[in-house]
Amino acid sequence: MSVRRVIPLSTILLALAACGGSPQSTLAPAGPAAGLLAHLGWVVYITFGIAAVVTIIIVLMAALRRRGSLDGHLPIDIGGGHQWILIGGLAIPFVVLTGIFILSLVRESAFPIKDGGKVTPEIQVIGHQWWWEVHYLTGPENEHFVTANEIHIPVGRPVDIELQSGDVVHSFWVPALHGKVELIPGVTNYIRIEADRPGSYQGQCAEFCGAQHAHMRLLVVADSPQTYAAWHQHMLSPAAIPQGVDAQHGEAVYMNAACTFCHTIGGTPSQGKVAPDLTHLASRQYIAANTYRNDTADLEAWVTHAQSMKPGVLMPNLTSFNGVDLRDLVAYLDQLK
């Protein structure tokens, strides 16, 4: 095999391998709903792959066929060949396309769940430009809580989620777990997700919703039932009391700044409802709707210069802090486990 043939072939193989390792691959399902979609995907890829190969072979056979001389040529209007059109052009495509069409209708009918009125959702997700507000609705009302951008579920059992929009149309999509479901203003949709094994599954808004649509990401963390129960219990607690002089000063900085108008920190006077709840911010893996890692450096930068990290986001550049205030503010936020 010549070098010139090896290079394109290996490029294609590399590209395919890259798909396998992607954190948002529909071909790496981690739950039953996504498993059905992956199955549909493989049926489509393989069917059309075979159709493409057969078509190419037939075209090559026609192109490479010896034509002979005009003397020995049969009359051109000899008839025949209609079978090829009737079978290859009509019958086979009709059967194949009808089959795949019906299969995809069956698969897609699972999203969103029908009879939404009969579903009792455990979680309510409200899409905002550009983040996800997440309400946990299990148990009595005083055990409900709010979080953002990171959804925890127990493995091995279905979890029903109610989807709404706070502004424009969004779409909730965690490729490893389920198919896309729209969040439409004024409409409530429901989706059932289930994870077979523990893991962190990346998700993404899948309907263009404005400048930072591509950075409207989310994370679903599937835990063992015990770990999930512990997490759920922890989320019911109020925010951690700051330890150490720096974090205590940081809390005062936070409470005297504009932060409180938009953000909530449970158990404190900060009860703004416009932006993500920060009660357990430090327990989350990412900030800015899973756009940046939740670490000290990114938090400091996000507080003072969110507009350069995610232009257009509602979080303003808070440029009035001096160095000590900013450092201590983030020290406080880092303690909100």
Binding site: Y292, R293, D295, A297, D298, E300, A301, W302, T304, H305, S308, M309
Partner: peptide, 20 residues
């Protein structure tokens, strides 16, 4: 790894384009 680039522009480091 420490995300120095959240605040600093650092040539040769990916996503190091901070404006703080």
């Amino acid at each position: 790894q420490l995300r120095c680039g959240a605040c600093h522009v650092i040539p040769g480091v990916r996503n190091a384009n901070g404006m703080v």
